[in-house]
Design a protein around this nucleic acid. Structure first.
Lengths: 112, 112
DNA sequence: CGCTCATATGAATATATTATCATATGTTCA
DNA sequence: TGAACATATGATAATATATTCATATGAGCG
Protein backbone atom coordinates (compact mmCIF):
# COMPACT_ATOMS: atom_id res chain seq x y z
CA UNK A 1 0.00 0.00 0.00
CA UNK A 2 1.16 3.51 -0.75
CA UNK A 3 1.20 4.58 2.84
CA UNK A 4 3.96 2.05 3.36
CA UNK A 5 7.19 3.50 2.09
CA UNK A 6 9.93 1.46 0.55
CA UNK A 7 12.85 2.29 2.79
CA UNK A 8 13.78 4.05 6.00
CA UNK A 9 14.55 7.39 4.39
CA UNK A 10 12.29 10.37 4.73
CA UNK A 11 9.91 10.68 1.80
CA UNK A 12 10.59 13.75 -0.33
CA UNK A 13 6.96 14.28 -1.17
CA UNK A 14 5.30 13.93 2.19
CA UNK A 15 8.20 14.46 4.62
CA UNK A 16 7.08 11.46 6.58
CA UNK A 17 9.45 8.94 8.05
CA UNK A 18 9.19 5.74 6.11
CA UNK A 19 7.83 2.34 7.00
CA UNK A 20 4.37 3.10 8.32
CA UNK A 21 2.80 -0.31 8.41
CA UNK A 22 -0.89 -1.05 8.43
CA UNK A 23 -0.61 -2.27 11.99
CA UNK A 24 1.02 0.95 13.06
CA UNK A 25 -1.85 2.89 11.53
CA UNK A 26 -4.34 0.75 13.39
CA UNK A 27 -2.46 1.37 16.64
CA UNK A 28 -2.41 5.07 15.89
CA UNK A 29 -6.17 5.09 15.35
CA UNK A 30 -6.55 3.23 18.64
CA UNK A 31 -4.56 5.94 20.40
CA UNK A 32 -6.56 8.78 18.92
CA UNK A 33 -9.77 6.97 19.73
CA UNK A 34 -8.91 7.27 23.40
CA UNK A 35 -8.68 11.05 23.09
CA UNK A 36 -11.86 11.07 21.05
CA UNK A 37 -14.29 11.02 23.93
CA UNK A 38 -15.23 14.14 25.85
CA UNK A 39 -15.29 12.43 29.23
CA UNK A 40 -11.79 11.09 28.78
CA UNK A 41 -10.48 14.40 27.47
CA UNK A 42 -11.98 16.16 30.46
CA UNK A 43 -10.31 13.71 32.80
CA UNK A 44 -6.97 14.26 31.09
CA UNK A 45 -7.33 18.04 31.29
CA UNK A 46 -8.34 17.73 34.90
CA UNK A 47 -5.09 15.89 35.53
CA UNK A 48 -3.04 18.58 33.80
CA UNK A 49 -3.16 20.41 37.11
CA UNK A 50 -1.60 17.52 38.94
CA UNK A 51 -2.65 14.18 40.34
CA UNK A 52 -6.13 13.66 41.74
CA UNK A 53 -8.19 10.92 43.28
CA UNK A 54 -11.36 9.51 41.77
CA UNK A 55 -13.74 11.40 44.02
CA UNK A 56 -12.12 14.70 43.09
CA UNK A 57 -12.38 13.93 39.39
CA UNK A 58 -16.04 13.00 39.80
CA UNK A 59 -16.71 16.32 41.51
CA UNK A 60 -14.76 18.29 38.93
CA UNK A 61 -16.62 16.73 36.02
CA UNK A 62 -19.90 16.45 37.91
CA UNK A 63 -20.21 12.85 36.85
CA UNK A 64 -21.13 9.47 38.23
CA UNK A 65 -18.30 7.64 39.98
CA UNK A 66 -18.83 4.48 38.00
CA UNK A 67 -18.65 6.27 34.67
CA UNK A 68 -15.39 7.89 35.72
CA UNK A 69 -13.91 4.61 36.92
CA UNK A 70 -14.76 2.90 33.67
CA UNK A 71 -13.07 5.64 31.68
CA UNK A 72 -10.07 5.71 34.02
CA UNK A 73 -9.62 2.04 33.36
CA UNK A 74 -9.49 2.69 29.64
CA UNK A 75 -6.98 5.50 30.16
CA UNK A 76 -4.86 3.29 32.37
CA UNK A 77 -4.94 0.38 29.95
CA UNK A 78 -3.79 2.77 27.23
CA UNK A 79 -0.96 3.94 29.48
CA UNK A 80 -2.13 7.55 29.32
CA UNK A 81 -2.57 7.80 33.08
CA UNK A 82 -0.90 6.08 35.98
CA UNK A 83 -2.51 5.11 39.27
CA UNK A 84 -1.24 4.49 42.76
CA UNK A 85 -3.05 3.73 45.96
CA UNK A 86 -2.89 6.06 48.92
CA UNK A 87 -4.90 4.69 51.79
CA UNK A 88 -8.45 4.23 50.65
CA UNK A 89 -7.99 6.46 47.66
CA UNK A 90 -6.55 5.84 44.23
CA UNK A 91 -4.48 8.70 42.92
CA UNK A 92 -4.39 9.21 39.16
CA UNK A 93 -1.87 11.22 37.17
CA UNK A 94 -0.95 11.83 33.56
CA UNK A 95 1.47 9.16 32.45
CA UNK A 96 3.90 11.31 30.49
CA UNK A 97 4.48 14.53 28.59
CA UNK A 98 3.34 13.06 25.30
CA UNK A 99 -0.20 13.27 26.51
CA UNK A 100 0.26 17.00 27.07
CA UNK A 101 1.82 17.48 23.67
CA UNK A 102 -0.80 15.59 21.77
CA UNK A 103 -3.57 17.58 23.39
CA UNK A 104 -1.76 20.89 22.84
CA UNK A 105 -1.40 19.96 19.20
CA UNK A 106 -5.09 19.32 18.74
CA UNK A 107 -5.90 22.43 20.71
CA UNK A 108 -3.94 24.58 18.28
CA UNK A 109 -5.90 23.16 15.41
CA UNK A 110 -9.19 23.96 17.13
CA UNK A 111 -8.20 27.52 17.94
CA UNK A 112 -7.70 28.63 14.37
CA UNK B 1 -14.54 23.33 36.68
CA UNK B 2 -10.83 23.00 37.46
CA UNK B 3 -9.84 22.51 33.87
CA UNK B 4 -11.05 26.02 33.23
CA UNK B 5 -8.34 28.42 34.36
CA UNK B 6 -9.06 31.81 35.84
CA UNK B 7 -7.13 34.07 33.47
CA UNK B 8 -5.19 34.09 30.25
CA UNK B 9 -1.80 33.45 31.84
CA UNK B 10 -0.03 30.16 31.56
CA UNK B 11 -0.68 27.95 34.55
CA UNK B 12 2.43 27.35 36.64
CA UNK B 13 1.42 23.84 37.58
CA UNK B 14 0.37 22.39 34.29
CA UNK B 15 1.99 24.77 31.76
CA UNK B 16 -1.24 24.95 29.85
CA UNK B 17 -2.61 28.12 28.37
CA UNK B 18 -5.61 29.20 30.34
CA UNK B 19 -9.29 29.34 29.50
CA UNK B 20 -10.04 25.85 28.27
CA UNK B 21 -13.80 25.79 28.27
CA UNK B 22 -15.98 22.73 28.36
CA UNK B 23 -17.06 23.39 24.79
CA UNK B 24 -13.47 23.56 23.64
CA UNK B 25 -12.84 20.19 25.23
CA UNK B 26 -15.84 18.73 23.47
CA UNK B 27 -14.58 20.13 20.16
CA UNK B 28 -11.17 18.70 20.87
CA UNK B 29 -12.65 15.28 21.51
CA UNK B 30 -14.58 15.61 18.25
CA UNK B 31 -11.35 16.30 16.41
CA UNK B 32 -9.53 13.34 17.89
CA UNK B 33 -12.50 11.12 17.21
CA UNK B 34 -11.98 11.74 13.50
CA UNK B 35 -8.44 10.40 13.75
CA UNK B 36 -9.65 7.51 15.85
CA UNK B 37 -10.77 5.29 13.02
CA UNK B 38 -8.36 3.14 11.08
CA UNK B 39 -10.03 3.73 7.72
CA UNK B 40 -9.81 7.49 8.11
CA UNK B 41 -6.21 7.37 9.34
CA UNK B 42 -5.30 5.24 6.35
CA UNK B 43 -6.92 7.74 4.02
CA UNK B 44 -5.02 10.59 5.66
CA UNK B 45 -1.74 8.71 5.38
CA UNK B 46 -2.54 7.89 1.80
CA UNK B 47 -2.91 11.61 1.14
CA UNK B 48 0.42 12.40 2.77
CA UNK B 49 1.92 11.53 -0.59
CA UNK B 50 -0.13 14.13 -2.37
CA UNK B 51 -3.64 14.49 -3.68
CA UNK B 52 -5.56 11.51 -5.01
CA UNK B 53 -8.95 10.75 -6.44
CA UNK B 54 -11.47 8.42 -4.83
CA UNK B 55 -10.76 5.46 -7.07
CA UNK B 56 -7.07 5.62 -6.24
CA UNK B 57 -7.77 5.72 -2.54
CA UNK B 58 -10.10 2.74 -2.84
CA UNK B 59 -7.39 0.78 -4.61
CA UNK B 60 -4.72 1.79 -2.12
CA UNK B 61 -6.80 0.75 0.87
CA UNK B 62 -8.44 -2.16 -0.93
CA UNK B 63 -11.83 -0.99 0.21
CA UNK B 64 -15.33 -0.47 -1.07
CA UNK B 65 -15.91 2.84 -2.86
CA UNK B 66 -18.96 3.64 -0.79
CA UNK B 67 -17.17 3.12 2.50
CA UNK B 68 -14.39 5.43 1.34
CA UNK B 69 -16.82 8.10 0.17
CA UNK B 70 -18.63 8.05 3.48
CA UNK B 71 -15.38 8.51 5.36
CA UNK B 72 -14.19 11.20 2.98
CA UNK B 73 -17.33 13.09 3.70
CA UNK B 74 -16.58 12.99 7.42
CA UNK B 75 -13.02 14.14 6.77
CA UNK B 76 -14.24 16.96 4.57
CA UNK B 77 -16.86 18.08 7.06
CA UNK B 78 -14.13 18.20 9.69
CA UNK B 79 -11.98 20.29 7.37
CA UNK B 80 -9.17 17.77 7.46
CA UNK B 81 -9.22 17.22 3.72
CA UNK B 82 -10.21 19.41 0.82
CA UNK B 83 -11.85 18.31 -2.40
CA UNK B 84 -12.00 19.66 -5.90
CA UNK B 85 -13.53 18.29 -9.04
CA UNK B 86 -11.42 17.46 -12.06
CA UNK B 87 -13.60 16.15 -14.85
CA UNK B 88 -15.41 13.09 -13.62
CA UNK B 89 -13.08 12.66 -10.70
CA UNK B 90 -12.95 14.27 -7.29
CA UNK B 91 -9.47 15.02 -6.09
CA UNK B 92 -8.84 14.93 -2.37
CA UNK B 93 -5.93 16.44 -0.47
CA UNK B 94 -4.88 17.07 3.11
CA UNK B 95 -6.31 20.39 4.22
CA UNK B 96 -3.30 21.75 6.08
CA UNK B 97 -0.07 20.96 7.88
CA UNK B 98 -1.76 20.56 11.22
CA UNK B 99 -3.03 17.22 10.09
CA UNK B 100 0.53 16.13 9.44
CA UNK B 101 1.71 17.39 12.78
CA UNK B 102 -1.05 15.79 14.78
CA UNK B 103 -0.39 12.44 13.18
CA UNK B 104 3.38 12.75 13.63
CA UNK B 105 2.78 13.51 17.28
CA UNK B 106 0.70 10.40 17.84
CA UNK B 107 3.14 8.37 15.85
CA UNK B 108 5.99 9.34 18.18
CA UNK B 109 3.96 8.17 21.13
CA UNK B 110 3.30 4.82 19.49
CA UNK B 111 6.91 4.24 18.59
CA UNK B 112 8.23 4.29 22.14
C1' DC C 1 -14.70 -8.34 63.41
C1' DG C 2 -18.06 -5.11 61.50
C1' DC C 3 -18.90 -0.60 59.71
C1' DT C 4 -17.80 3.10 56.53
C1' DC C 5 -15.53 5.21 52.82
C1' DA C 6 -13.28 4.79 48.16
C1' DT C 7 -12.98 2.51 44.04
C1' DA C 8 -13.75 -1.23 40.67
C1' DT C 9 -16.50 -4.23 38.02
C1' DG C 10 -20.30 -6.85 35.57
C1' DA C 11 -24.61 -6.65 33.28
C1' DA C 12 -27.97 -4.20 30.87
C1' DT C 13 -29.55 -0.51 28.14
C1' DA C 14 -29.19 3.25 25.08
C1' DT C 15 -26.76 5.38 21.58
C1' DA C 16 -23.33 5.95 18.01
C1' DT C 17 -20.65 4.28 14.34
C1' DT C 18 -19.24 1.62 10.29
C1' DA C 19 -19.64 -1.02 6.19
C1' DT C 20 -22.65 -2.71 2.67
C1' DC C 21 -26.13 -2.57 -0.79
C1' DA C 22 -28.87 -0.21 -3.91
C1' DT C 23 -29.44 3.76 -6.17
C1' DA C 24 -28.96 8.69 -7.29
C1' DT C 25 -26.19 12.52 -9.03
C1' DG C 26 -22.94 14.52 -12.00
C1' DT C 27 -19.50 14.49 -15.90
C1' DT C 28 -17.71 13.21 -20.39
C1' DC C 29 -18.15 11.90 -24.90
C1' DA C 30 -19.98 9.67 -29.04
C1' DT D 1 -29.55 12.38 -25.82
C1' DG D 2 -27.87 8.24 -23.81
C1' DA D 3 -24.20 5.19 -22.40
C1' DA D 4 -20.26 4.74 -19.38
C1' DC D 5 -17.61 6.20 -15.72
C1' DA D 6 -16.82 8.48 -11.03
C1' DT D 7 -18.60 9.71 -6.86
C1' DA D 8 -22.24 10.59 -3.37
C1' DT D 9 -26.03 9.32 -0.60
C1' DG D 10 -29.89 6.95 1.99
C1' DA D 11 -31.31 2.90 4.39
C1' DT D 12 -30.14 -1.03 6.79
C1' DA D 13 -27.73 -4.23 9.66
C1' DA D 14 -23.86 -5.36 12.47
C1' DT D 15 -20.93 -3.86 15.90
C1' DA D 16 -18.90 -0.87 19.29
C1' DT D 17 -19.24 2.40 23.01
C1' DA D 18 -20.78 5.00 27.11
C1' DT D 19 -23.53 5.42 31.05
C1' DT D 20 -26.22 3.61 34.73
C1' DC D 21 -27.41 0.46 38.34
C1' DA D 22 -26.29 -2.94 41.49
C1' DT D 23 -22.85 -5.02 43.76
C1' DA D 24 -18.11 -6.53 44.80
C1' DT D 25 -13.49 -5.53 46.49
C1' DG D 26 -10.33 -3.26 49.43
C1' DA D 27 -8.54 -0.06 53.14
C1' DG D 28 -8.95 2.22 57.62
C1' DC D 29 -10.76 2.39 62.12
C1' DG D 30 -13.36 1.68 66.46
Amino acid sequence: MPYRHDDTEECKECHLIADVSENELIDLAELFKIFGDSTRIKILFDLFHGEKNVTQICEDLEMNQSAISHQLKILRTSKLVSARREGKAMIYALADDHVRMIIEMGKEHIEE
